[in-house]
């Protein structure tokens, strides 16, 4: 890419609108899960905070709350409420990440978001492929050694991320 003329982009409110749509989708998903009124009110407040304060902890809390409520609501891991929540949570995460960089009145060139959207599509494809594989596999109890190995793998992954973070500083 060589040169770009500024002034023809879109308002940052479009991105905030995407955040709002993702939040609305999550709220709709919660309603479908028969969430309690108090929890729904908290989720609405968190959604408003996500739109107006995208660089706050509100998106993380909303994602955690939605995941918790959806998980507690039913046992089937591949029911539509869960499958809908997967892209919505990812969209909320990405839109808040970009919107958090920009002040009010900012504008964005849609071409800037293209690599991010392509990558998000790939990630969603991988996750849904995993879900598809899981749907095909028989449901049996995992032996304890396998679970232990899985936990250790996750802990190692976490250490890898933390280590890479420190090496960048």
């Amino acid at each position: 890419m060589t040169g770009i003329d500024v002034g023809r982009g879109r308002s940052v409110w479009w991105l905030r609108g995407v955040t709002g749509l993702a939040c609305a989708g999550i709220l709709g998903d919660l309603v479908a899960n028969d969430v309690a009124t108090i929890m729904f009110g908290v989720a609405v407040l968190l959604s408003a905070a996500c739109v107006f304060l995208p660089a706050s902890p509100a998106p993380l809390v909303l994602i955690g709350l939605a995941a918790l409520i959806t998980t507690v609501a039913a046992d089937d891991p591949l029911r539509p409420a869960v499958l809908v929540l997967i892209p919505l949570v990812h969209a909320l995460h990405l839109s808040c990440a970009v919107t958090g960089l920009l002040p009010r009145g900012a504008r964005f060139d849609p071409r800037a978001l293209r690599p991010m959207l392509v990558r998000a599509a790939w990630v969603q494809g991988v996750v849904f492929a995993i879900a598809g594989v899981v749907a095909l596999l028989p449901v049996v109890r995992t032996p304890e050694p396998v679970e232990l190995i899985a936990l250790l793998s996750i802990a190692g992954l976490a250490l890898l991320v933390i280590g890479s973070q420190r090496s960048r500083r």
């Binding site: 994602i63 995941a67 990558r119 991320v161």
Partner: peptide
């Protein structure tokens, strides 16, 4: 993984995968 809830793994997986790819 700890609670044996696949739905939690699927919800958290895009965030984790995206972060690993970005880093």
């Amino acid at each position: 993984v700890v609670l044996h809830r696949l739905d939690l793994v699927l919800i958290g997986a895009p965030l984790l995968l995206g972060t690993i790819l970005a880093l």
